[in-house]
Design a protein around this nucleic acid. Structure first.
Lengths: 350, 350
DNA sequence: ATGAAAGCGCTAACAG
DNA sequence: CTGTTAGCGCTTTCAT
């Protein structure tokens, strides 16, 4: 059996409470006993029992994170791993652990999240679901559980979140295309009901407006974040009377799809069409031409979310606060000035 | 304050132990009281406190997993996410949770792992470190903690592990190349001190031997699992008096590197050189030509590891056992018969 | 500066 | 079938 605080107390010839005090680094303890106790602990190989401590302190020193099990989201994996790394790096410094729970769907997520919190297996959670489950959020709020969400949910709610400034990011990406000389810029966007999609579309429109260009409805295609939709959206764009010369794509995966149809049609990138994506996925620099994409700083998103959560968990009654994480446009080879044509070789190689 | 077992007892007009019994689904409880108690629990929104229960049962119902923080392993991310999903899917069915700990290096891993176990934050761990830390393993053994390792460590030890049959996998991949008619088959392998590298190299040699082909030392290059090394190894192979017509690469990432030098030299894949990789990473089907690669069934590796761990944790004294997970060669476009030449277009597009 | 005692919420004999 | 009792290992008043 593992040594307990009592064993240490006996060995050091002090009371259990004294041992507890040296563990807590309580200042009013004599240098002498401090050493005596430390020595006894070392000799017995003592390690405090987290559950016993948690039981009395009513804290598990653990926070929860949820990851979607669905294979269709496999490509968003890099996102999760980065976020996990970021979150882990900060909470571990605070002596917390990370509980990871796989979920099947939104219903499951809600059940699991609440359950973990109520059982006191976790002290707080970070939510990172693109399709924000409002029911969960309002429940978490009314039950007073600490949580922070990555990716801003429906605006107006006074909750803790961290997010990118997707409006600005899309604005800048569009501006980049504009400065390259493009006048016909389309956008392939994500699901319309997602805040992230709305924001990116907004930034795109704003940039157009700033540069005195009209927004054309037929240049904006919304759909799921899949490669297949990217292909189809590009086909649609190509079928237009006046096809665009550049397209902003709200996700790299969709961008890969778009590039595939370009390749199939023997169109050159960036000769015939410039493409910029979002997410800066690891694949972006692997394909040809390498994809210019908006880096979201996911690791940072994770660290900031964790820092926020640590604050809330450690001093409750904390006011809701928000952080926005900067993005960067990573320029690679998929964009050029319009109307250059040629370069068909590259296009055929997406 | 959350409701406790006592509150429920009071409300249902029974004793706390009775409540405890209905929670545990103890058979000798009357239908009547059972319902009464369940009703009280529902009304109070009662949820058992995991720490209190854990404290008396001496079990946290949580298992630990470790993930490397180093960014250089970013590309092995897909591996981890798959493993996590597999592990999660089975332990959650057993009512267990997954504690994920980010580690900086081997030393850190050892400390963290032991600490989590001793604090009783986790009941067992799954280790998945390519470079197996023997000190950790022997400590885990002597201290009697439940653990299973993914990827076989030094042979001879009677520990629980799950692994692919890397010898067989490499044998089959090589055989595939042989049947395509290749006679000059080289191999770019991983670090020589890794069991996984040794196994794959062994399978490669065995296949050569089976087909009456000599093993040539200059055809086997070992080095780190990086894209850069893949590039260099391929350069070396190309500089040989008699370059190979096909190469087996022990990791997709290295394979991508190898393909890159081929592309630079304007050599065709598979026209001038056939390539097969290992891991079947998500990128494998994205590049051109799509890479033929050995799928390792990582999800399955995870589920089997978790099943093993659950057995050990739930009934201690369990004998050490092992499971080997089948692999599959996923055939894509990077291999062909030797000496066909041409097809330069594709090669230039890796 | 240190000890005694109570209790965190639950389970598990042991009675009945 | 159900209640009583005694902890699990730790922290925390309250004394001293």
């Amino acid at each position: 059996m593992a040594a307990t605080i009592k064993d240490v107390a006996k060995k050091a010839e002090v009371s259990p409470s004294t041992v507890s005090r040296v563990i807590a680094n309580n200042p009013r303890i004599s240098q002498d006993t401090h050493e005596k106790v430390r020595k006894a602990m070392k000799e017995l190989g003592y390690h405090p029992n987290a559950m016993a401590r948690g039981l009395v302190k009513q804290k598990s020193q653990t926070i929860g994170l949820f990851i979607s099990t669905s294979a269709e989201l496999a490509l968003s994996n890099p996102f999760f791993v980065e976020a996990i790394r970021g979150i882990g790096s900060v909470i571990q410094k605070h002596g917390y652990s990370l509980l990871l729970h796989s979920i099947e769907d939104e219903k499951d997520a809600e059940r699991a999240c609440l359950s973990l919190l109520r059982q006191k297996k976790v002290d707080g959670v970070v939510l990172s679901t693109s399709r924000v489950n409002d029911k969960l959020i309002s429940k978490l709020q009314t039950e007073g559980y600490p949580f922070v969400v990555i990716g801003r949910p429906v605006p107006g709610l006074s909750i803790n979140w961290v997010n990118n400034d997707n409006i600005k990011a899309a604005y800048e990406a569009t501006e980049y295309l504009l400065k390259l000389g493009h006048q016909q810029i389309a956008m392939i966007s994500g699901p319309e009901d997602l805040v992230v999609s709305m924001d990116r579309a907004k930034g795109y429109k704003m940039a157009l407006q700033s540069y005195g260009l009209p927004f054309r409805q037929e240049y904006l295609k919304s759909g799921p974040f899949t490669q297949v939709f990217g292909q189809e959206a590009m086909k649609h764009l190509l079928s237009l009377e006046q096809p665009p010369t550049a397209v902003l794509v709200a996700d790299d995966l969709m961008a890969f799809g778009a590039m595939e149809t370009l390749k199939t049609r023997n169109l050159s990138i960036p000769g015939d069409m410039s493409i910029v994506g979002f997410n800066d996925s690891p694949l972006a620099s692997f394909i040809h031409p390498a994809l210019t994409s908006v880096n979201l700083n996911i690791y940072e998103l994770g660290t900031q979310a964790a820092k926020l959560l640590m604050e809330i968990v450690e001093k409750p009654g904390h006011n809701a606060s928000q952080r926005v994480i900067p993005t960067q446009l990573i320029i690679r080879e998929s964009c050029g000035s319009p109307g250059k044509g040629g370069d068909t070789l590259k296009a055929s190689c997406v």
